[in-house]
């Protein structure tokens, strides 16, 4: 237990240094944020066009889908902020030889790397998500009780950690290719599938997003519950997160040992 606390405090101190560095790039950051929001708006435009042709999609209305979209963005925003450096392991750390420096630190390298994350532009996702969630709750006239609020905060963080764990698993590709960021990204992108009701998909994709890359636990099941659609699947989310992190750490350590013993 003390070990965990120590690691968390180390992590926080890394984040603090990264933040200072990041402030230097303020302008770039604002531009990045705006452009990410813009990209999401393009997706939302698609949803809008779809609902020009129908009232509901697998039983979900336009507002329902936007709420799901917003809840997803909350988790995506948090996870991009916290785990962004996973993308850099291949192209930055290993390619430039900085990884060896990280191995020399008295902390687990994964904590060092995750602590280096400073993707402030992801606040754009978070902000847009927050905006969507608030407006949709108002539009749908869902009473926001303290309990619901607590649920949203809790499950958003759990959702972010699910994404983080999945990205961590695929980040082991860094030990074999410098272009690991593209590998991670390929799998990460499937989270966009869960921004729509999963009933529209065929069996294979349903299986993919619930069991293989269980992104459905990030926002889809929680949102169903917020909308009163009687889903108890969301209570599995924390379990999924813990199992995924367990796998992620095991896999990562295994890959790291292999890397250490053979070099690259």
């Amino acid at each position: 237990m003390t070990n965990v606390i120590k690691n968390i405090s180390l992590y926080l101190s890394f984040v603090k240094t990264s933040m200072k560095e990041m402030l230097i790039y303020r302008l770039d950051c604002i531009v990045g944020m705006l452009s990410q929001i813009f990209t999401e708006l393009v997706e939302i435009l698609f949803i809008w066009i779809v609902f020009q042709n129908t009232e509901t999609l697998a039983g979900w209305t336009f507002e329902h889908i936007l709420l799901l979209y917003g809840i997803t963005l909350l988790s995506v925003g948090i996870s991009d902020f916290c785990f962004d450096a996973l993308y850099d392991i291949g192209p930055k750390y290993i390619r430039r030889g900085e990884f060896d420096k990280i191995l020399l630190r008295p902390v687990h390298p994964l904590i060092s790397i995750i602590g280096d994350s400073k993707e402030f532009t992801s606040l754009g996702y978070f902000g847009l998500g927050l905006f969507l969630v608030i407006t949709m709750f108002i539009k749908l006239a869902i009473p926001v009780t303290f309990g619901l609020l607590l649920q949203i905060v809790f499950f958003s963080i759990i959702g972010a950690s699910i994404i983080g764990a999945i990205n961590t698993i695929f980040s082991i590709s860094s030990f074999w290719t410098y272009r690991s960021n593209e590998v991670i990204w390929s799998f990460y992108r499937t989270y966009t599938f869960t921004q729509y009701p999963i009933d529209i998909y065929n069996g294979f994709i349903k299986l993919l997003i619930t069991a293989i890359l269980p992104f459905a636990f990030v926002a889809y099941y929680p949102t169903m519950s917020y909308l009163g659609m009687n889903s108890y699947m969301l209570y599995l989310s924390p379990v999924v997160a813990i199992v995924l992190w367990f796998i992620a750490i095991k896999v990562w350590n295994f890959a790291l040992n292999k890397y250490r013993s053979t070099g690259n």
């Binding site: 992108r189 921004q195 529209i200 998909y201 994709i205």
Partner: peptide
Amino acid sequence: VEVVVYIFVWQAI
């Protein structure tokens, strides 16, 4: 992956 969502959404409609 980029195109899957679009196709399934239209199929559902």
